[in-house]
């Protein structure tokens, strides 16, 4: 599939030089396809994601929404037999360019997973700065500063500032998920991907995370996969609706402002889905 090198002047290089303050976290997905072995999970998906806004990906189970999300930071290809083709332009630079380093890509595009996955053998503090340590940051003062800032942004500082040395696994489920968000924010990503971040949480913890998402929108481009339409309606500015086509590959059906998609869907299938006629 077309994996054309863009003009090459500004691809995300292995040195990571392209990441600049000027980056707003704009994402343009062009003709993205993803496979598991021979099975094609996502077909010819193109969409432009607005920077500093929340974009929700909704659709029935197995429609490839998580796969699509994982393609954005090249996490999809980590699974055995999985591959992807197409373009994902982060501030104009193709993360699938031949000279793009997936490890660097993932430092610029943070990810939060379905189940909270703090590192249980690390303290709360070490969980937050784990990514920075990987990137080679050793300056203790800088790590301290980033840890506090990230925990504050994740609305967790007040709850954990007296137990930074406790295990990350000792926190409650909702706190663990916010710790994982802090861990991703510590990398100063332009984009934050969230793969059903509330599916393992209770309603109270869920609403805290949703508040947080609305808060973070001011500084980050957020793409969130959710199986919960109410959640999409509550937190997102734009919504993309994915559905399996006749080849059982996920395809984009409709994409637009959340209010419009939920109140006045343009496609019959979207309407059927959001009114609960299937899915």
């Amino acid at each position: 599939m077309s994996n054309n090198n863009n003009d090459g002047a500004s691809a995300v290089t292995s040195a990571g030089t392209v990441h600049s303050e000027a980056g707003h976290g704009s994402l343009v997905v062009e003709d993205l396809q993803a496979w598991y072995g021979r099975f094609r999970a996502v077909a010819n998906l193109s969409l432009t994601i607005t920077p500093r806004a929340v974009t929700a990906i909704i659709g029935p189970s197995g429609c490839g929404k998580s796969t699509f999300l994982r393609c954005i930071n090249r996490m999809h290809e980590v699974a055995r037999g999985a591959r992807a083709a197409g373009k994902v332009l982060l501030d104009g630079d193709d993360v699938y360019a031949p000279d793009a380093d997936p490890v660097q890509v993932r430092r610029h595009i943070g990810m939060v997973f379905q189940k909270p996955n703090p590192f249980p053998m690390m303290s709360v503090y070490d969980n937050v700065v784990a990514g920075l340590k990987l990137a080679g940051v050793k300056n203790r003062a800088m790590l301290d500063e980033v840890a506090e800032r990230s925990l504050r942004r994740a609305a967790l500082w007040d709850e954990v500032n007296d137990k930074l040395n406790n295990s990350g696994a000792a926190l409650s489920g909702g706190q663990q998920q916010r710790l994982c968000i802090a861990r991703a924010l510590a990398m100063e990503p332009q984009v934050l991907l969230m793969d059903e971040p509330c599916s393992a949480l209770d309603p109270v913890a869920t609403s805290k995370i949703e508040d947080l998402i609305r808060e973070l929108r001011q500084n980050y481009t957020i793409v969130i996969v959710t199986h919960n339409m109410q959640q999409a309606a509550r937190v997102s500015d734009h919504t993309a609706f994915l559905l399996l086509d006749e080849d059982r590959a996920g395809r984009l059906v409709e994409y637009g402002p959340t209010s419009q998609l939920f109140t006045n869907p343009q496609d019959r299938r979207t309407e059927d889905y959001i009114t609960g006629r299937f899915g």
């Binding site: 490890v103 430092r107 997973f113 590192f119 990514g131 994982c180």
Partner: peptide, 19 residues
Amino acid sequence: TQREGMIGLGATKWETITG
């Protein structure tokens, strides 16, 4: 999920195993 958490932070395979 533990491996993915580390990879998602920009870890190489080796760093994922040791970290």
